[in-house]
């Protein structure tokens, strides 16, 4: 302990010996319990209990009938072995993985570019771009999904019309994006990237504005060109933020549900069906709830594994938990 720095509050809060001091100690140590319990109760009923229940359910044959009768039986790992034998599961898993990769790469690259662009704009244009980003960021996914369907509508969709005018792809006027596996995915990919860029760009831009000018000036004086400065100075400076943004994108994009559900509902013919869509269909359309639970367990395990990287980083960054 140094006399000039205040010791951490907790150390101080542990009272010393003597009747009154120990009395105070006991009263103080109960305060966090009271403060935590309401939030803890909610998390317990709405998150922790369901997770336990989820794992349990994945070992049962819970189905539509069980919802009303409450009757179901334990079937061991049958749901998991069934899934392992189901080619649709493997297809969904692979699809989810590469959809996620494509979305993350697209949005991080565009987002980084826009962040960099923002640092090179005059006041007016920077404000214009920022307002555009904020508008897009604010758009609720349900609304943007509807807009997307309208943009890509066969016959009257403005994107179809624009692409036809460009003339490279031939006449696309009546192309139905939602019935063509590849095109359905392209339109969803565009939607996700469109929505994800604002957050990534603004976060990275915020990180860039924090960068001391002296760093770049020093690099200039050391004779580095613009590209070199960006590569050796700017990029390392924003790398932690980029990593964070990328990890969050991975988690979000892995979980994309609304956009796919509303734009293509996983179609055509499951061509855009990810694990989330597959689980939802299994549980709430065909009401094989046990199997849906098994799917959700698998999804959760994958995600926790992914986020473990992020959490380890946070723990290691030395932040006092």
């Amino acid at each position: 302990m140094t006399a000039t720095t205040a010791p951490s509050p907790g150390v101080r809060r542990q009272g010393g010996p003597g009747p009154r001091a120990s009395q105070r100690k006991r009263r103080r140590s109960l305060a966090p319990l009271w403060l935590l319990s309401p939030a803890g109760l909610v998390m317990l009923t709405v998150t922790i209990a369901p997770i336990v229940f989820l794992v349990y359910t994945s070992f049962t044959d819970y189905n539509q009938r069980s919802l009303f009768t409450g009757k179901y039986s334990l079937v061991g790992v049958e749901q998991y072995t069934d899934l392992a034998a189901d080619p649709e599961f493997w297809q969904s898993l692979l699809r989810t993985l590469w959809f996620t990769a494509a979305m993350v790469i697209g949005s991080v690259i565009v987002g980084t570019g826009v962040a960099q662009l923002l640092t090179r704009l005059g006041v007016v244009l920077r404000q214009v771009v920022t307002v555009v980003l904020i508008f897009v960021w604010a758009m609720p996914t349900v609304a943007s999904s509807l807009v997307w369907k309208w943009l890509f509508q066969p016959g009257y969709g403005v994107v179809n019309w624009l692409l036809t005018q460009v003339g490279v792809f031939g006449d696309l006027t009546n192309t139905d994006w939602s019935t063509h596996p590849g095109l359905a995915y392209v339109s969803i990919w565009l939607l996700i990237v469109w929505q994800a860029v604002p957050f990534i760009a603004l976060t990275l831009y915020a990180a860039l504005t924090q960068m001391p000018v002296e760093l770049q000036e020093a690099a200039r004086i050391d004779g580095a060109g613009e590209w070199r400065t960006w590569w050796s100075i700017t990029l390392p400076y924003i790398r932690p933020t980029m990593l964070l943004v990328t990890l969050m994108s991975v988690i979000w994009d892995f979980n994309v549900f609304n956009q796919i559900w509303l734009v293509s509902a996983g179609g055509p013919d499951s061509a855009t069906s990810t694990l989330g869509i597959f689980a939802y269909r299994t549980a709430f359309v065909s009401f094989r709830i046990g199997q849906g639970a098994a799917l959700s367990v698998i999804t959760t395990v994958i995600l926790v594994a992914l986020s473990a990287i992020y959490i380890r980083r946070l723990l290691r960054s030395g932040e006092d938990l």
């Binding site: 009923t45 709405v46 998150t47 209990a49 369901p50 997770i51 229940f53 989820l54 359910t57 819970y62 988690i251 892995f254 979980n255 549900f257 989330g276 689980a279 939802y280 549980a283 709430f284 709830i289 849906g292 639970a293 959700s296 367990v297 999804t299 959760t300 995600l303 926790v304 992914l306 986020s307 992020y310 959490i311």
Partner: peptide, 15 residues
Amino acid sequence: QMLPASALLIPTFMV
């Protein structure tokens, strides 16, 4: 914070 809402949907529904 990392858990997918869609994964929790099923058990929360049941609870």
